[in-house]
Nucleic acid binder design. Sequence first.
DNA 1: CAAGTCATGGCAACCGCTTGTCGTCCCGGG
DNA 2: CCCGGGACGACAAGCGGTTGCCATGACTTG
Lengths: 331, 331
Amino acid sequence: MPTIYDVAAACGVAPSTVSRAFSRPGRVNAETAARIRQVAEEMGYRANPLARALPTGKTSLLALVVSDVTNPFYFEIIRGAELAATEADYTLLVADVHESATVERKALERALPLVEGVVLGTSRMSDSAIRVMAQQRPTVVLNRVLTGIPSVITDNARGARRAVEHLASLEHRTIGYLAGPEASWADGMRWRAMREAAEMLDLRVQRFGPFAPTLAGGAEAVPLVVASNVTAVVAYNDLVAIGLMRGLAAADVRVPRDVSVVGFDNIFGAEICSPALTTVAAPLTALGKYAVQTLLAGMSSRTPPQTRPALLPAELIIRDSTARRARRRRS
Amino acid sequence: MPTIYDVAAACGVAPSTVSRAFSRPGRVNAETAARIRQVAEEMGYRANPLARALPTGKTSLLALVVSDVTNPFYFEIIRGAELAATEADYTLLVADVHESATVERKALERALPLVEGVVLGTSRMSDSAIRVMAQQRPTVVLNRVLTGIPSVITDNARGARRAVEHLASLEHRTIGYLAGPEASWADGMRWRAMREAAEMLDLRVQRFGPFAPTLAGGAEAVPLVVASNVTAVVAYNDLVAIGLMRGLAAADVRVPRDVSVVGFDNIFGAEICSPALTTVAAPLTALGKYAVQTLLAGMSSRTPPQTRPALLPAELIIRDSTARRARRRRS
DNA sequence: CAAGTCATGGCAACCGCTTGTCGTCCCGGG
DNA sequence: CCCGGGACGACAAGCGGTTGCCATGACTTG
């Protein structure tokens, strides 16, 4: 690999001039710069990002920490984040932390010195731990609000409201909520919004759980739902909703005839499961994209970043898992 | 951030001694080393990976290039690769190339100087392009064989055979194959193995396509399948299979009663779709893990790496999308 | 007791690029 | 004709480690 020294020698100029020819347009005579660029091109010169990063700290690397890469929830988020990063000439480092705060800490420790900024997707760390690390590198959190730290969230309240309204319009009067992990910020939001919306519409709501945010978690809820008198249930997320539906099918309860089911997030899978899942779609790609853009904006400006959470709209997607309430079938 | 210079000053030794205390155990007196380590610990010293990488080239970074991060096929692969990388104290850089050879080239160009090695998952680049880049960095390819370059593949032949045998045991006599992209190495393998297995069992096979390896691709195949006289079809991958099933359902053709469907890969989604998909399961996590391990092995040994492709076993998972042949219903 | 060996620590060069500072040359104005 | 100032390039000092080589002193060995 040729270096600026090689290029400089070939052009008969000093290395610093070559450096400036690339990074400081105008600082060097236009003709000289053009000549240097051409020679560099011919020699196949590429700046060594490591060497560049050492004195400047500009690695052009951003970290995206996700709690579990195999969770379909993240696919689109990663895609969106990548898009935004690439657009700004950054490379995204995706770190998977396997749902463990310990692994998350380790991964961050490893990645932190390398990256210029961090997006925390559904972090499992404590607020204070996040604050500590936000001091080391610009940070944006996803799906969580943390005063003083920029965050990007979906409008869960609105989504939950839409879901409840939809169910109400189908004449459901008592609906269940399958709660997610206690530590989940989104869970709290969703549940609260549901309760409020239900109250407004004079519906009854009942909370089950908490359950693991997985297919298995949803399956666990089956007996509780069956034993209750809810005619519709809203699940913490799509995975739980799908798990529930599969369990229900196994228990010979029909969706949506016997019970309607609504999920959250609209992950890959919500559409192909059967019946296709009615769900509150989170703007996943936009979430990832916007998080990175927010991060980059915060990095470039000298002023402290905007810390009011950015609220991205959620939308109810009506598919086949919800229907008009029928007489409840008891098993 | 304290540097080795700070630590050295605090200990009253030379910076080089501090460096060696960490990286060259035994080279420095045990007591001195212990003291240095302790002081470093107290000061919160962490080696700057950039500075370390500059002279040594050891970035502890590996790249995994995937054609599309939102494709569920990769989730487990990424997970496996990450696992193996972390285990060896490497960090994985996942690059998404959006199914484009151009983007792939750009991404590689950007990442190459940063990483010590590359795993190419389902590359869209030409053989020669891959060979060129394999000269710059140790490379392992996934799902593709390239003489002279280490590769890790699933035993498609065996999987296809199992699928055909299964279908034969259900008394299907003529089966269809929904082809994937022409450029796909796996597609060729799967089709060939199917043909051979079919011949052995005295079945008739018919090839449709090529189709895009997506849900939409599978949907496209519906009219062809309906118009043909096959009673079972094997799809290039699960996405295509699921797309087909959904299209078939819309066309009022019942799976598996009217036609049996088999997929490939066993991605997330194969289990939750309806009917649950019978599929040839690729050892996805193992694939990613093994690829990284192979890469690391090749990097550390002085001898040229093993280039005979590693064949990981595929297994047929029988679910609900295949059944005994019935009289074929014509629409 | 002289000479050779080994363990240990220090010196300094180097990885490739950035950037503050300085020298030189040229130009115009007083 | 001299001087101030701008444009341009070169010099050199880092960034934070790694590592080859040397100096020193202690210990072994004949």
